[in-house]
Design a protein around this nucleic acid. Structure first.
Length: 326
DNA sequence: CATCAGGGCCCTG
DNA sequence: CAGGGCCCTGAT
């Protein structure tokens, strides 16, 4: 076990999101299985963040209400961070958690929808979002490939514990991601020994590509969805499944829904067609079903998906347990 | 015990 | 463009 690096409070800022805003469902996604890099309790989220090369601890606290939201963000670091760095960190967090997202159009269109209406009512103010940079998300995406949840978590945890840094702040100990390029001296063979399997090659290539500075995430965000998709698919180890996750979680496209993985297929079949998971509805039919949500397809999926996972936190759902195998 | 598919993707033919 | 192979694991 590595020794934790002690951080201390270096900045505190207040963030005001657009309304309505729901803190807990925005900052905690029960389907993002945690691997020691974040922690949550109602009203508070802790996470690490590698920002401009600095290992940071972040604490978000809910200090407002749905209609009058207010978040206090405390930044912990080894030593003082400049105002510029703090400012850019804030705007990045506003981006990653979609704090300025306007959901009115979405709600107005589907508030009365038979399927989506109840989920909107329950999760009013929830934002989609993901804490990771593109590089970090790619590493996560790679360990998700062709593996069950338990195995993915194992792989991610192994990587963090070998190449990440353990940070201590606000009485929490959490793992922080390594810098892109940090794996340059780690051999593919070594990664295989750490049980990454054939993914070792993808991890190496991704790290090398980003380590050389060949990918500009900021610039790519400004490009069209088609360009983004094209650039992402050029990366070794990125295919249709991973690109679909990326376009939603990292690039914030709410209307793009073209991929359903086998376990998701089973879950949607049960949810929307009440079909047994042994005989799921075809992917084509599922995609057609979601057409009704038009330009909000993926956002609709997110609301329904999160609704199910929150339900799981306080209710045993046998058929779901069977599919996820944590 | 063996076999198989899994929160895919690459490569070959 | 279809299909085999890939690391490892848990299910059957």
């Amino acid at each position: 076990m590595k020794k934790a690096l002690a951080l201390h409070l270096v900045a505190q800022r207040t963030l005001i999101p657009s309304t309505p805003f729901d803190f807990d469902s925005t900052f905690h996604k029960p389907d993002h299985f945690t691997s020691g890099d974040n922690s949550w309790t109602p009203g508070v989220r802790w996470q690490t963040c590698l920002w401009h090369g600095e290992q940071l601890g972040l604490k978000f606290e809910n200090k407002g209400t749905k209609q009058s939201p207010k978040i206090v963000l405390s930044v912990y670091a080894k030593s003082k961070i400049g105002k510029k760095s703090a400012d850019s960190l804030i705007s990045e967090m506003r981006y990653r958690y979609n704090l300025d997202l306007d959901l009115r159009g979405f709600y107005a269109a589907f508030r009365r929808d038979k399927v989506l209406g109840p989920a909107i009512k329950r999760w009013r103010g929830m934002r989609p979002g993901h804490p990771s940079s593109l590089y970090e998300y790619l590493i996560i995406g790679i360990v998700l490939q062709n593996a069950t949840v338990r195995r993915s978590m194992q792989m991610f945890k192994t990587l963090l514990e070998h190449y990440g840094a353990l940070l201590r702040f606000d009485e929490k100990e959490l793992w922080c991601f390594w810098k892109p390029g940090a794996l340059s001296r780690v051999s593919e063979e070594r990664l295989r020994k750490l049980k990454m399997g054939y993914r070792a090659k993808s991890i190496k290539k991704t790290d090398e590509y980003f380590g050389k500075g060949l990918m500009d995430e900021e610039e790519l965000r400004k490009k069209s969805r088609e360009t983004q998709m094209e650039k992402l698919l050029e990366l070794y180890g990125v295919g249709p499944a991973t690109v679909w996750y990326l376009l939603f979680d990292v690039f914030h496209h709410w209307d793009f829904f073209n991929h359903v993985s086998p376990w998701e297929q089973k879950i949607y079949s049960k949810l929307f067609f009440n079909r047994s998971t042994e005989r799921p509805v075809s992917v084509k039919k599922l995609l057609k079903y979601f057409e009704r949500f038009g330009s909000y397809k993926q956002l609709a999926v997110h609301y329904l998906w999160e609704d199910l996972w929150w339900k799981r936190t306080h209710e045993h759902i046998p058929w779901l347990e069977k599919e996820i195998r944590v």
